[in-house]
């Protein structure tokens, strides 16, 4: 019965749960999402993320030289190299495409990239019904 006093004290304290995004499930989720979009409904923010968090990949297409090291180290085979035409010397040029639905967020590609054109953003709300939606394919 060591917990008896503990639970009684807790009765008068605030719950530990972070009420993200809302306290109770709304009657209609679609309607609630619409309301949030219009700014009529405020959502509770998620817990703050620390610096150097590993979120969704962001990719600087201009800097990329198409060396393909990232595809070699990616454990999930989430990176694909796409030919984008030939340069002036007639050599095939490549750019990377990232499938976030396969990504394991290890950030090994970030470490491996010699031109530092890949980085991890702070974005982590990535749920989607389509694996190939615009939000889940980074070009």
């Amino acid at each position: 019965m060591t917990m008896a006093f503990e639970v009684f004290k807790q009765l008068f304290k605030k719950p530990f749960t972070n009420k993200f995004p809302v306290k109770y499930i709304p009657k209609s989720v679609t309607a609630a999402v619409e309301k949030i979009g219009k700014g009529e409904l405020k959502i509770n923010p998620p817990i703050e993320i620390p610096p150097n968090f590993r979120g969704k990949i962001s990719y600087d297409r201009e800097k990329c030289i198409g060396c393909g090291i990232c595809t070699k180290v990616c454990p999930a085979h989430a990176i694909e190299l796409i030919p984008t035409g030939k340069d002036e010397k007639g050599k095939e040029k490549y750019k990377a495409i990232f499938y976030i639905s396969r990504c394991t967020f290890c950030s090994q590609c970030v470490d491996a990239c010699p031109k530092e054109c890949i980085s991890m953003s702070n974005e982590f709300l990535l749920a989607d019904t389509d694996r190939f939606s615009d939000a889940l394919v980074v070009k």
């Binding site: 807790q10 009765l11 304290k13 719950p15 530990f16 749960t17 009420k19 306290k23």
Partner: peptide, 8 residues
């Protein structure tokens, strides 16, 4: 739930 620090 409140005694267990949950919302419930």
């Amino acid at each position: 739930a409140h005694m267990q620090a949950r919302v419930g």
